[in-house]
C-alpha cells in the first residue's frame, strides 16, 4: 500500500518529483477506517505548540487567539478535504445544515465521534453552541491555577471557524469551560456567533 502510494502518478521512471496533486487523496479515511497515530503523539506535539505560543504572548486571551489562528487554516483544509470525500462537492446552503455538517461530519472525521450536542442559544438567535465533554486538545491538560481559564480547545474553535468561513458562513467561534458539577471535569462549549449578514441571508432564503 505504501509503495503504491509513493509511486502513484510518477508515470515515467525519470520523473522523481511527485506533485502533490498527482497523489491520491481520498483513499485515506474512506469508509471510516482512516489512518491513525497515537493520541500521545498528537498531545506531545500540541503541547509543544502551546508552549511555543505561550512564550510569545502576554495574556491568556492572546494565547487563545493564537491557537484559534492556527486552527483557522486547518479548518479551511478540513473543509476542502471533506468536500471532496463526504459531500460529493455539494454545498450546504442552510444554516442548520452547515452546523450539522460541523458537529457530525467534521467532528467524526477529526475526532472519530459526533459532538455531544448542538444547541441554539435561547438568548441570541445568531448564537449556537456545540458541547464537547472532552476535546482531544484537553485530554492531558491540567492548567496551573494562574492560567486556569485557558482552554486549549481554542485550537478546535479556530478549526470550526475556518470550516464555517470557508463554507461562506462567517462566524466567530470561541471555546469556554462550563462546569457540569459533581466534581467532574469541566466540559467545553464552543460558542458560534454568526455574522449578521449570514442571518439576513438565511431569512431571505427561507422567506
Amino acid at each position: 500500500m505504501t509503495e503504491s502510494k509513493r509511486n502513484a502518478g510518477s508515470g515515467g521512471g525519470g520523473i522523481r518529483m511527485l506533485n502533490i496533486l498527482d497523489r491520491p487523496l481520498a483513499t485515506k479515511g474512506r469508509g471510516g477506517g482512516g489512518s491513525e497515530v497515537s493520541l500521545s503523539a498528537f498531545s506531545f506535539l500540541f503541547s509543544e505548540m502551546v508552549q511555543y505560543y505561550q512564550n510569545r504572548v502576554l495574556s491568556i486571551a492572546d494565547l487563545e487567539r493564537k491557537l484559534e489562528e492556527a486552527g483557522y487554516g486547518v479548518g479551511h483544509r478540513v473543509l476542502e478535504l471533506l468536500a471532496f470525500r463526504e459531500k460529493q462537492y455539494r454545498r450546504e446552503i442552510k444554516l442548520i445544515g452547515v452546523l450539522q455538517f460541523v458537529s457530525s461530519t467534521v467532528w467524526k472525521a477529526l475526532f472519530n465521534k459526533v459532538a455531544d450536542s448542538l444547541e441554539r442559544s435561547t438568548e441570541n438567535e445568531d448564537e449556537y453552541m456545540i458541547h464537547e465533554r472532552e476535546p482531544i486538545t484537553n485530554v492531558f491538560v491540567s492548567a496551573p491555577a494562574d492560567i486556569s481559564q485557558l482552554n486549549c480547545a481554542a485550537y478546535i474553535a479556530g478549526i470550526i471557524s475556518g470550516v464555517l468561513n470557508g463554507a461562506s458562513y462567517p462566524a466567530g467561534v470561541t471555546a469556554h469551560h462550563v462546569a457540569i458539577g459533581d466534581g467532574q471535569r469541566e466540559k467545553t462549549v464552543f460558542l458560534i456567533k454568526f455574522r449578521q449578514d449570514v442571518l439576513r441571508r438565511e431569512a431571505a432564503l427561507s422567506g
Binding site: G29, L45, M49, A70, G73, L110
Partner: peptide, 22 residues
C-alpha cells in the same frame, strides 16, 4: 500500538503543518 489511544492522522498532520507555518 494496539494499546495506545489513537486519533485521526490527518488532524495530527494538519496540526503539525500549522505549527511549521507559524
Amino acid at each position: 500500538w494496539t494499546k495506545m489511544s489513537k486519533m485521526n492522522a490527518e488532524l495530527f498532520n494538519l496540526t503539525y503543518g500549522a505549527m511549521v507555518m507559524q
